[in-house]
Amino acid sequence: MIKRKRTMYGLLLVMVCCVTACATKKQVAPVVNTKREVLDVMRSANTYFMEKWPDTGKPIYTNRWRPSNIWTRAVYYEGLMALYKIDADQRYYDYAVDWGTKHAWGLRNGTQTRNADDQACGQTYLDLYEIDPKPERLATIKTNIDYVIASGKVDDWTWIDAIQMAMPVFAKLGVLQKDDRYFDYMYKMYAHSKNSEGGGLYNTKDKLWWRDKDFVPPYQEPNGEDCYWSRGNGWVVAALVRVLDLLPDTDPHKTEYLQDYKNLMEGVLATQRTDGFWNVSLHDPTNFGGRETSGTALFAYGMAWGLNNGLLDAKTYRPALNRAWNAMVKESVHPSGFLGYLQGTGKEPKDGQPVSFSSVPDFEDYGLGCFLLAGSAYYVLLDKEGMK
């Protein structure tokens, strides 16, 4: 009898250990990517795009013609420059320089535009100026931002996408010009979006951002929750990452940006799908729910950057990052390099639908830019960990 009890106890102990091991395995996604694999998939996706768009100055046609220095293409070049930092292929640099040259290093609506979508190209112009300080690469974007500062008007960023499009430009100019005026004015514009626009677009309770004042409560999603658009929050993640990468520690607002970044990453982490992706609507998976690549890539970018800089807890965020990257590689990337599950342009879950593996968004460029930002930061993390 005693022997039988011991046998049953042993079997029970084995079962408990198996359940615990399975639970642990489920919680911690293994790293299945080498640096080479990460780089190869980025190269594939980028080659697909460069071959499709050999003329960097060619206008983009969807429902109408648009110049190719608009925000969608600017985000692609942000990603390309990130790729260039880890994979110094001369073709990438030449492709970016040719883009700037074809547009005379200018902005879509000239030096007196206040539209952040016009200013986004300045991020790459300034990156290229830093590599080779030819004055034409700096002149127009600096003239424009100086014009904005001289106006005294700080309420331009009425939608959260604008924070990513323009805020890093101010930060980069502040560094390059050694002039705190750019940092100070950037903060005033950010603070307006965060605290004043529509009553404040940042919700401290959910640690997420409403896309613009149209989505501030009493607006609700079909399930009664607040509407937090995935890619919109992703833009804020990217903006904070890129600004924190540039700001000197002496900046009086850096601590606030850092806390906003950490809080936002908490809000984002709580909404990740079990398959590694995020839905287009972070708090309502029934409103055009399903895999979506651009928001997922931006959140992965934020997580990888935070882990690289020791700002996020690895036990908490590394499994989430692994799930996100693996999901995109396995489910989004076509053999050709085309990215599926990419929501088209818009401002809320219903826009740019349907989103599927084979659906082609109205613009393919910004999704690739987000993916390259994520992959480059993930590559750096693997490199730090000694992965081959």
Rank of each mutant, 00 (worst) to 15 (best):
I2K: 10
K3F: 02
M8Q: 04
L12I: 03
A23G: 00
K25R: 05
K26S: 12
Q27P: 00
P30V: 03
N33Y: 06
N33T: 05
T34I: 05
E37F: 02
D40T: 09
S44C: 15
N46M: 06
T47G: 05
E51L: 13
T56Q: 14
Y61A: 15
N63P: 03
N69Y: 12
W71S: 01
R73K: 11
V75T: 13
Y77F: 12
K85F: 02
D87P: 04
R91Q: 15
Y93F: 14
D94G: 03
W99E: 03
T101Y: 12
H103C: 01
W105I: 02
L107A: 07
Q112T: 15
N115F: 15
D117W: 01
G122R: 06
Q123N: 05
Y125V: 13
I149D: 13
A150I: 13
S151L: 08
D155V: 13
I160D: 00
Q164M: 08
V169H: 06
F170I: 08
A171F: 07
G174F: 09
V175H: 15
Q177P: 10
D179G: 15
D179L: 11
D180I: 09
D184E: 12
M186Y: 14
Y187L: 08
K188I: 15
A191S: 14
K194E: 11
E197A: 13
G200R: 14
L201Q: 14
D206N: 15
D212N: 11
K213W: 06
E221I: 00
N223C: 09
D226H: 14
D226G: 08
S230P: 02
N233M: 00
V236Q: 00
A238D: 03
L240W: 01
V241P: 02
R242S: 03
R242E: 07
L244I: 00
L244P: 01
D245A: 07
D249L: 04
H253D: 02
L264R: 00
E266R: 03
G267D: 00
G267E: 00
T271C: 05
T286R: 07
F288G: 02
G290A: 15
G290C: 09
R291S: 13
R291H: 12
T293L: 11
T293V: 15
G295T: 01
L298K: 04
G306C: 06
L307A: 11
N308G: 11
N308I: 12
L311F: 05
L312C: 08
A314H: 14
K315S: 15
T316H: 11
Y317E: 12
P319V: 06
P319M: 09
N322V: 07
R323I: 10
M328H: 11
K330V: 06
L339H: 10
L339V: 12
G340H: 06
Q343M: 05
Q343Y: 05
G344H: 06
E348A: 03
P349V: 01
G352A: 04
V355E: 06
V355D: 06
D362C: 14
C370N: 09
L372Y: 07
A374F: 09
K384T: 07
K384N: 08
G386C: 09
